[in-house]
Design a binder for these strands. Structure first.
Length: 891
DNA sequence: ACCTATCTGATGGCTG
DNA sequence: CAGCCATCAGAT
């Protein structure tokens, strides 16, 4: 088939015994060509006993066989024949334990791997349809299509609406749609799903309706169907700045978060009525449809995710359709091709049943943040938990670098090499696991990852050489990013039992070499008298040194420490590189993987007043917490980072929000919780052969929504409101049923306050104003149920619950850890601290009496109330200090 | 059908 | 029935 070699293809699919290849000719016309579909498996001839080889070659199931170096390439007559030979226990190949290679690769992948063709950039179009709203979602194939819109990336729109509520009318509408689609190759829709598998919405509906109305000759396989929703999710999860883009994946919510565009004023659950009403109503529905479609285009304009995905597909030789989003497919595309070029083949992927126990392996090192330990703080005389001037270094692309440096790969792994002691010539050994790899020939994995990193740099350099913002600059940027995405995902695929590259000992050697490097680096930093206060996977956080010290240290690690240590493991190359990434001016941990900090510099560039803080793991970043919780946490976070030390200032913010939660009307968006269904709804609840597990609130709500005919498939985010958490299981309602009633005590005690309490009790561990513990702001639920609930106050539930009992204000046991030195308490009078510099004057006085005890300043306000100000100053109490403070003392 | 580590909250059994 | 504990699910 010389005519199709070396060209570019848009799509391909198996049709009987042939592959149909889709391309476009010079004038842009779509062309179809056919090549034979091959069901291939490889053997190593050395593995095949001669008798078995003879039998194989004579078998009627074999279409063709040829030698390729040490390999035997066998083309089977059918998929079933190949499956039996490679996977069935009764087959002589499996019975004799002869390994097979790539015996699961489908004909399209095989052809793409073997031919030097490239992936063409498809013509992209966005699609959205409106359907009959009277039909429940569970019968989506029975919904009549009322309108459709296509939008091009450039903004050009085509729209059509049903002319008559008849099958003939719908046939015309769909015929028009397919005629327009002929100009495009890749169709993008939000929750479009899969046209064949009945998943999602738009794609299966138009295919099912086309079948139903009849008379339209079209093969949907000629198009690439790409679901924008999972694509956005996958690309955005790591990139999202806050939880706003994770809360709901409805098009309207994402559009709001990304392009800042609100809903069109139209009730989507009444499309039928709008169509039937004709006139202005119908026009509104049409406008709504057009606008929704255009939102897809605008989301892509902002994010560039589809463009990046197209580039990833080009790099990995995949067609840009929904299935190609899976990293296993991406790595398969890249590595099968690379193996072919280098005369190497990979094991047949065995389909294990779900119940099989998969091999687990150890992961990365995560240190408990030292600052959370009260004794540690006491030793360092820290009154607050806020760290200052913390230097952070991290390894550049740690896992890819390790894979290259240790030449890791299933085929370079050496069985039976010594786990400790001297390392034999020609081997290198991963520390901790003791797994050895040959250094004589580069592994495919190492080569692949090195190639990806090299190409990333090529395009990164190219980008730097181009005028920013030009199409070429964007293209180079996307390519550089695509190579990075691939390089980073390869370790994960190696650790996945569903991948043909799965090897737990290789994956574990990757993670444990990381652990070893981190510990090595940490030990060296501590030898210099600095303290490593936190480390996670590929980064270390250090205090006690200057910027110059730390920069020099990182340099020394790269030029001295690592080259030496790596050589000692027998490696012949070294790609390990540490970088001084940033320093935090202020940094607050609440737990491992949870912190917020403000930079003093980032890669040497000094931070400015508007530099955004770095937030990791906190509720602020999560999509499942209520908005009120996020807002309070955000405010308090900013205050902490701004250096606010007057606890009374925090109290004001807390009490204001608490009063709002307990006493004022609350909006749905402030309190709604959102959780995803991680599996199909049917799989919740008691499962045969498994212990019964309690049903989560979101599952109970999802079942109600299902009853109402809504789409609640796997991955759907369910929004709900808790109406009574004082009973078990707690009472919940779908968000759409919210009428202003909710359990306010639950909202404060569980949803809102704990997230902020954790911040404050880590920042100011000795407690809130007046020395009470921060926990005293919580526990607002009265001991007994409000008499208003259920009885006389019918219909109000907890909505108008009683105000917070006075007993719950600022009481509780102080939480000063016993190990901390007792602070010296100095009472000051507000009037004597006249701004602007009153407090500074007091601090200046304190600074003249350096010592070992922390000071708490109690400020007596004009109203008689007392506020507590913590200081970072420590003093030696003395009569002289007493005298110096006298002018500021309270009467 | 990409890994592990970690944290948080819901739930239900057990205990005093 | 509050508090402790183990277990599970979900999120990062």
């Amino acid at each position: 088939m010389g005519s199709v070699y070396g060209t570019s293809f848009l799509n391909a699919f198996v049709d009987g015994s042939q592959i149909v290849l889709v391309a476009r000719d010079g004038s842009g016309r779509r062309t179809l060509s056919r090549v034979p579909a091959e069901w291939v498996s490889y053997f190593r001839t050395a593995d095949l006993p001669s008798e078995l080889q003879r039998d194989l070659l004579r078998s009627s199931h074999v279409l063709a066989a040829r030698r390729e170096g040490p390999w035997l390439r066998v083309s089977w007559r059918s998929r079933e024949a190949r499956e039996w030979i490679c996977q069935d226990r009764a087959s002589p190949v499996v019975a004799q334990g002869v390994p097979t290679y790539e015996g699961d690769v489908d004909p399209v992948r095989r052809w793409l791997t073997d031919s030097p063709c490239t992936i063409a950039r498809p013509r992209l179009v966005y699609l959205d349809i409106e359907t009959d709203s009277r039909v429940p979602f569970s019968r989506k194939e029975e919904m009549r299509v009322l309108a459709w819109t296509l939008v091009e990336p450039g903004g050009k729109k085509v729209h059509a609406v049903l002319r008559a509520d008849t099958d003939a009318g719908e046939r015309d509408l769909l015929r028009q749609l397919w005629a327009e689609l002929a100009a495009y190759d890749c169709v993008v829709a939000w929750n479009g799903g899969d046209p064949i598998k009945r998943e999602g919405f738009d794609f299966p509906v138009i295919v099912a309706r086309t079948d139903y109305v009849g008379g339209i000759t079209v093969d949907p396989r000629e198009w690439l169907w790409l679901d924008h929703l999972p694509l956005f999710k996958r690309m955005n999860m790591h990139a999202a700045e806050s939880g706003a883009e994770k809360r709901s994946f409805k098009l309207q919510s994402i559009a709001m978060a990304v392009v800042g565009e609100g809903k069109d004023d139209f009730d989507a659950s009444r499309t039928w009525e709008a169509w039937e009403a004709d006139g202005a109503e119908r026009l509104r529905m049409q406008r709504y449809n057009i606008k929704d479609t255009d939102l897809l285009r605008r989301i892509e304009e902002k994010t560039g995710y589809i463009g990046l995905f197209f580039t990833i597909c080009e790099v990995c030789k995949l067609f840009p359709q929904t299935q190609s989003l899976h990293p296993t497919r991406q790595m398969d595309g890249f590595l099968l091709r690379l193996g072919q070029e280098r005369g190497h083949h990979f094991p047949t992927r065995i389909f294990r049943d779900g119940s099989a126990v998969t091999e687990q392996f150890e992961g990365a090192l995560v240190m408990e943040p030292k600052v959370l330990d009260a004794e540690w703080r006491a030793r360092r005389q820290m009154v607050t938990g806020i760290l200052r001037e913390v230097h952070v270094a991290d390894f550049a692309s740690l896992y890819p670098s390790i894979m290259i440096t240790m030449n890791m790969g299933a085929e370079t792994k050496v069985a039976g090499a010594p786990v400790q002691g001297p390392i034999p010539e020609g081997l290198c050994r991963a520390p901790i696991t003791g797994v050895s790899f040959s250094t004589r020939e580069q592994s495919i994995l190492a080569f692949a990852v090195e190639e990806l990193i090299r190409l990333r740099k090529v395009w990164g350099d190219k980008k730097a050489s181009l005028p920013p913002g030009t199409p070429e600059w964007y293209d180079a940027d996307r390519r550089s990013m695509a190579y990075k995405v691939c390089a980073n995902s390869f370790y994960g695929v190696t650790g996945s039992p569903f991948s043909r590259y799965f090897d737990a000992s290789v994956a574990e050697s990757v993670t444990q070499t990381g652990v070893w490097l981190l510990k090595l680096t940490s030990a060296e930093a501590e030898k210099r008298g600095w303290e490593v206060i936190y480390a996670d996977t590929d980064s270390i956080f250090t205090v006690g040194c200057t910027r110059e010290d730390f920069a020099k240290f990182v340099e020394w690690c790269n030029t001295d420490l690592y080259p030496r240590a790596i050589r000692e493991q027998g490696c012949t190359v070294n790609k390990i590189k540490l970088a001084y990434e940033k320093a935090f001016d202020r940094l607050l941990f609440t737990a491992g993987k949870r912190y917020v900090g403000r930079y003093s510099h980032y890669k040497g560039k000094a931070a400015t007043a508007d530099s955004k803080p770095e937030i990791k793991g906190l509720e602020y970043k999560r999509g499942d917490v209520s908005l009120l919780a996020v807002q309070l946490q955000e405010r308090v976070m900013k205050m902490i980072l701004d250096g606010e030390e007057r606890l009374a200032a925090y109290e004001a913010v807390i009490l204001r929000d608490r009063a709002h939660v307990l006493e004022e009307p609350l909006t749905l968006e402030e309190i709604v919780k959102s959780q995803a269904l991680s599996k199909p709804l049917k799989e919740y609840g008691p499962q045969p052969g498994k212990d019964p597990t309690p049903e989560g609130a979101h599952v109970r709500v999802a079942k109600v929504l299902l009853e109402r005919g809504q789409d609640v498939g796997e991955g759907t985010r369910v929004e709900f409101v808790v109406t009574d958490a004082s009973v078990s299981p707690m009472h919940v309602i779908p968000a759409e049923d919210f009428d202003g009633t909710c359990d306010r005590y639950y909202v404060w005690d569980t949803l809102v306050w704990p997230a902020t309490e954790r911040l404050l009790s880590c920042a100011f561990p000795s407690g809130g104003p007046g020395g009470g513990g921060w926990e005293s702001y919580g526990r607002v639920r009265p001991q007994r149920k409000s008499p208003l609930r259920g009885g006389a106050g019918e219909g109000q539930g907890a909505l108008w619950g009683p105000p917070v009992p006075a007993a719950n204000r600022l009481t509780g046991t102080p939480t000063v850890p016993a190990a901390l030195p007792k602070p010296l308490v100095v009472e000051l009078h507000e009037a004597r601290l006249a701004p602007p510099s009153g407090l500074e004057k007091v601090k200046a006085v304190l600074a003249r009496f350096p010592g070992t005890r922390p000071v708490h300043l109690r400020l007596v306000l004009a109203t008689g109330a007392v506020a507590l100000l913590t200081t970072s100053v420590r003093v030696q109490p003395s009569p002289a200090l007493d005298a110096a403070l006298a002018p500021f003392r309270a009467a």
